[in-house]
Amino acid sequence: MTHVLAQRKYRFAAVLAIATARTFGLALVAAFIVLAVASAAIRAVQGGDSEMAYGVIQAIPVAMIAIGWLRLARAYPAAITNGMTRKEFLTGFALFGAATVLATAALTQLAVLALDLSPFQAEGVHVGFYGLTPLESAVIPILYFAVGTATGAVMLRFANRWVGAAVCAVLVSAVFYRQLAYYAAMNLFGLQSGGEDGTVFQYPMVDLYALLPYLDLVVALAFALFAWALLARAPMRPKQA
C-alpha cells in the first residue's frame, strides 16, 4: 500500500501528460502539418514566400498558458477529491510540467528542422524571432507554462472571481510586456543594448536578446514559486459540480 501511494504522483503526472498530448499536442501538430502543406500549395500556384506554419510555433506561448491554466483548474479539485495531499499534487503537477516543456521543445526543434529542410526557407521569419534555438525552445514553454499555472492558482486561491481575473490579467500582461521592464532595469543600472562602441557609461555592452532566455528563466522561477505558494494554501474543498 505504501508503494502504491508513493507512485500516485507519478501516475497523476502521466495521466495529465497523456491527456495533454492527445488534445493540445495533436492539435498543434495537425495544425502545423496542414498549414505547411497549404503554404507549399499556395507557393506552387501563386509563388511568393508565404509560410503559415510558423504561426503554430509563434502560438506556443498562448498554448502553454492554456495548458497550465486548464490542467491545473481541472486537476486540483479532482485530485483533492481522490485524497491526494498538497505535496503529492504539487510534485505530480511539476513533473507533468517538465514533461510538457520537454515535449514542446522537441516538437519545436522538429518543426524548425522540417521547415529548414523544405525547398523554401523563410529567412525573414528566423531573424529576430525569439524561440527557435534549442535553449529558447525550452525556455519559452517553461515561462508560459509557469504563467498559466500561476493564473490557474490565482483562480483557485481567491473565491472572488473578479479579483482573480484582475490578478490574472496583470500576470499575463506582465509576461507579454516583460521586455519593457528589462529595458527599464538596464537603463536604471546604466546598461543599454545595441551600443556599437562596446561600452555604455563605462559598463560592458549588454545585448538584451542574448540575456533574454536567462532573464526569462528567472521570471519563470518567480511565477512557479508564486503558484506553489498559492496552491499550498488553496482551499482543499473540491469545486461544486
Results as ranks from 00 to 15, higher is better:
residue 60 I to D: 05
residue 103 A to K: 05
residue 191 L to Y: 00
residue 48 G to T: 08
residue 137 S to P: 10
residue 10 Y to D: 14
residue 77 P to W: 06
residue 137 S to F: 04
residue 215 L to E: 01
residue 64 M to C: 15
residue 154 V to F: 02
residue 42 I to W: 05
residue 239 K to W: 10
residue 111 A to D: 04
residue 25 G to P: 05
residue 82 N to D: 15
residue 161 R to P: 08
residue 2 T to F: 09
residue 68 G to W: 04
residue 155 M to W: 09
residue 218 V to W: 09
residue 76 Y to R: 15
residue 198 G to C: 04
residue 24 F to M: 12
residue 14 A to E: 11
residue 202 Q to W: 03
residue 85 T to V: 09
residue 35 L to M: 12
residue 34 V to K: 00
residue 5 L to V: 11
residue 133 T to L: 14
residue 66 A to I: 12
residue 72 L to Y: 04
residue 223 F to S: 04
residue 45 V to W: 04
residue 186 M to D: 05
residue 61 P to S: 01
residue 116 D to K: 12
residue 227 A to V: 03
residue 16 L to K: 12
residue 55 G to L: 06
residue 217 L to I: 10
residue 196 E to G: 03
residue 195 G to C: 06
residue 220 A to C: 02
residue 166 A to Q: 05
residue 46 Q to C: 05
residue 9 K to L: 10
residue 94 A to S: 15
residue 161 R to G: 10
residue 142 I to F: 13
residue 145 F to M: 13
residue 49 D to Y: 07
residue 106 A to C: 10
residue 107 L to I: 11
residue 150 A to F: 08
residue 5 L to R: 15
residue 69 W to V: 04
residue 86 R to Q: 07
residue 176 F to L: 07
residue 100 T to M: 12
residue 174 A to K: 02
residue 26 L to K: 08
residue 103 A to I: 11
residue 157 R to W: 04
residue 207 D to L: 06
